[in-house]
Write a protein that binds this DNA or RNA. Structure first.
Length: 689
RNA sequence: GCGCCCGUAGCUCAGCCCGGAUAGAGCGUCAGACUCCGGAUCUGAAGGUCCCGCGUUCGAAUCGCGGCGGGCGCACCA
């Protein structure tokens, strides 16, 4: 809570241990006591020492406590419980320090590349993608808050089978089950593509994603009944890859490839719009087609071959494939067939293979680079429709050739000293393969700089699936949750959930304001707050069994609870000023807080300050563990402490000036903390609720 | 079969990394809250074999081993 305090305390413990017993102390952990009355910091070192010294921890603590040489902000120390040494801060002095200017964090050398979102550009985004994007985005904010330079990439698999599936749906609509509906969807999709990069007159951007969603589900069901369609998919895929590789295509092939390119490009715009709604942005859109075009794979392939990491299989089930052998590797122990195909027998590269090349590039060891251009999404006025994650540049995408590329940004992207891949836990195996490939290609040091940020999926409760009218089998119904499936059309679309949240927020506002509708943006802010808190409050290795009632909750441990706390805090300052009283403390008054009577900072008031003091360590812990939920829980703790204070420590009605000053000071710390933490969480705070 | 994850209050989850202070929240239920900074709030109550067993330890929700139940992986899909 006080910069440098932790270090001082650690040093004091070490010194005392040496002096008293001549032993080096075990690691010094600083905890926060469960209640204010028990102090501000707890040292459980006596428990550790008990093992070495073979004496009861309580006795050790009683000897240790008075022997510690501590900085002056520590007012007193006590021994609690079985042997905790608890420290109590000089409250006025500590509070004055917390009110002091904090300044920007010292810059950390290097660059962190965070890759997230990565939605297949063939249909609307669903709530699982929201979890990915929100987790990634909050992580980006946390890193930046800690002084790290961050680059955000959203990888586009624009040459994959999923895109080919929808292309097949458009071209062969007549052959699908329910041809009538399929044809209508195909026609609708074409109107979108025709007016790209703008929406057709009277249509909404998201309509394209929705139409693709439905058509994709139809295609998925049709494959099961019509083998011919599978051939069409294969041909489409080949055409798409051929186009990327610069082959000259003709007739139907050329048409399919052009359609696929346009479709992916247009659907990505839908995703960017959806993410923009919740405040998520990117710096670069790397495209798989460019990875193919620039032969990134060839380069990676050479390295792998030179290092003996891959070989051409001559017989067995993988005959004709280039394979990476994984048996014997510790991580892959016990696997029945631990070999991974990188190049198929028909010569095409697997997704894993391409990912290896992309990963090498992100880590800065591939040796070749993309060209870059602003993303092709522009407003009717010709301005970029999307900007970089920090809003200071246009959004860029990769490009294969220098023609039309922006020379000013050449070499700007990739080459991360740390690379974080936000990808759900189901892809742990391929992620491990990619990392192993990087290692074996001769870059063990680079492999260590690459991190798979794994999180559990968002699934649907059977009730949620029912609520959407999705037919479930009896088997599904007996499960605790069912996985979403684009192919089955089973899932909750991100925009649909957002719409419902906005609608509910609007109703709530009106219910509280005597029917007056909220001004533009307010209901949206509340909706985004609710969504972001919901998506981040669970541990990342916990499956979210999506439930509408929980996601739409505005009371209790929710985003609106946090927003309300922040709004209330700001309100008090506003009211103070409206009554001719002083609101926020200026620098001089903040300094004077150190001289307040400590009795004015009673436990009730101090509790919230103490909680706010944990912000920095929480941010550090999030960065270290990649556990974003810690930050939401911290925010909720601050909010709860504040709301409690609100009812017990009136400020406008404070009995005297000194009391009011003490409370204003505490309030100022809370307001600043909430603003900071909600900013990092990306939870917007409206002027009013 | 092998690997990873989950199992804590009626429900949804913290706490487990790093063993220690009466196991904490929210929702739901019940009972309350000032003519005074917004009731999206607050106060209180009821509610727990921390999945089971064995072990380690002065001490286990937390560490180890063995089970049980559930989920997810283990493609020339991504």
């Amino acid at each position: 809570m006080i910069p440098g305090l932790k270090k001082d305390v650690e040093a004091a413990v070490q010194e005392a241990c040496q002096r008293l017993w001549g032993v080096p102390p075990p690691r010094v952990v600083l905890e926060t006591p469960p209640k204010v009355e028990l102090g501000d910091l707890a040292l459980p070192v006596a428990f550790e020492l008990a093992k070495v010294l073979k004496r009861p921890p309580r006795k050790i603590a009683e000897e240790l406590a008075p022997a510690l040489v501590l900085p002056a902000v520590v007012a007193r120390r006590t021994v609690e419980g079985g042997g905790y040494v608890n420290l109590f801060l000089d409250r006025p002095r500590a509070l004055a320090r917390m009110l002091g200017p904090s300044g920007p964090p010292p810059a950390v050398p290097g660059k962190t590349v965070v890759e997230h979102t990565n939605i297949n550009p063939n249909k609307a985004a669903h709530i699982g993608h929201l979890r990915n994007a929100v987790l990634g985005d909050v992580l980006v904010h946390v890193f930046r808050r800690l002084g790290r330079k961050v680059e955000v990439q959203n990888y586009l698999d624009d040459t994959g089978v999923q895109v080919a599936d929808v292309v097949v749906g458009i071209l062969r609509a007549e052959e699908l089950i329910d041809p009538h509906r399929a044809s209508a969807l195909a026609a609708e999709i074409r109107t979108y593509l025709d007016s790209f990069p703008h929406d057709p007159p009277g249509a909404e951007t998201r309509g394209l994603g929705d139409a693709c969603w439905d058509l994709y589900a139809l295609v998925g069901r049709s494959y099961a009944q019509d083998q011919g369609l599978e051939d069409a998919r294969r041909e489409t895929l080949r055409a798409v890859e051929g186009a990327a590789l610069g082959e000259t295509l003709h007739g139907a092939e050329a048409e399919a490839a052009a359609l696929a390119g346009k479709l992916a490009e247009a659907v990505v715009r839908c995703h960017l719009k959806t993410m923009e709604r919740i405040g998520v942005g990117y710096d670069l859109l790397p495209r798989e087609s460019d990875i193919l075009a620039l032969h990134f794979w060839s380069r990676a392939f050479e390295r792998l071959k030179a290092a003996g990491a891959t070989h051409l299989e001559t017989h067995g089930k993988n005959a004709g494939c280039w394979v990476m052998r994984l048996e014997g590797a510790k991580e892959f122990e016990g696997m029945e067939d631990a070999d991974k195909v990188l190049v198929r027998s028909n010569g095409t590269v697997t997704y894993t293979g391409k990912d290896v090349a992309y990963q090498l590039w992100k880590l800065g060891v591939l040796g070749i680079d993309f060209e870059y251009e602003p993303a092709p999404y522009v407003t009717p006025f010709g301005d970029p429709e999307f900007v970089s994650s920090e809003g200071d540049a246009p959004l860029y995408r990769t490009r294969k050739d220098p023609t039309g590329a922006d020379p000013a940004v050449r070499g700007r992207f990739g080459g991360g000293t740390t690379v974080i891949n936000v990808i759900d836990v189901r892809q742990s195996y391929p992620q491990k393969v990619v990392k192993e490939a990087v290692r074996r290609a001769g870059y063990p040091e680079a492999a260590d700089r690459s991190v798979h940020f794994a999180y559990e999926m968002v699934a649907l409760t059977p009730a949620a699936a029912d609520a959407m009218g999705v037919p479930l089998t009896d088997e599904d119904r007996a499960r605790p949750f069912v996985e979403m499936s684009g192919r089955r059309g089973l899932g909750v679309k991100a925009d649909d959930l957002l719409d419902r949240l906005v609608e509910k927020a609007r109703e709530q506002v009106m219910a509280r304001s005597g029917g007056e509708p909220p001004e533009p943006g307010r209901a949206e802010a509340i909706a985004v707050g609710a969504l972001r808190a919901y998506m981040t409050r669970f541990s990342r290795n916990k499956v979210i069994a999506f439930d509408f009632d929980e996601a739409l909750a505005f009371e209790g441990d929710t985003g609106p609870y946090l927003q309300y706390a922040s709004v209330r805090a700001a309100n008090i300052f506003r009211k103070l000023e409206a009554q001719g009283l002083t609101g926020r403390l200026d620098e001089a008054e903040a300094a004077s807080v150190a001289d307040l009577d400590p009795a004015l900072l009673d436990d009730g008031l101090w509790d919230v300050v103490r909680t706010c003091g944990r912000t920095q360590e929480t941010l550090e812990k999030v960065a270290e563990t990649l556990e974003v939920s810690l930050l939401v829980r911290h925010a909720l703790a601050v909010g709860a402490a504040f709301h409690h204070l609100y009812h017990t420590h009136p400020i406008l009605q404070a009995e005297d000036e000194a009391t009011r000053r003490a409370r204003r000071a505490a309030l100022q710390v809370v307001a600043a903390t909430l603003e900071e933490v909600l900013g990092v969480l990306g939870v917007p705070v409206p002027d009013r609720m």
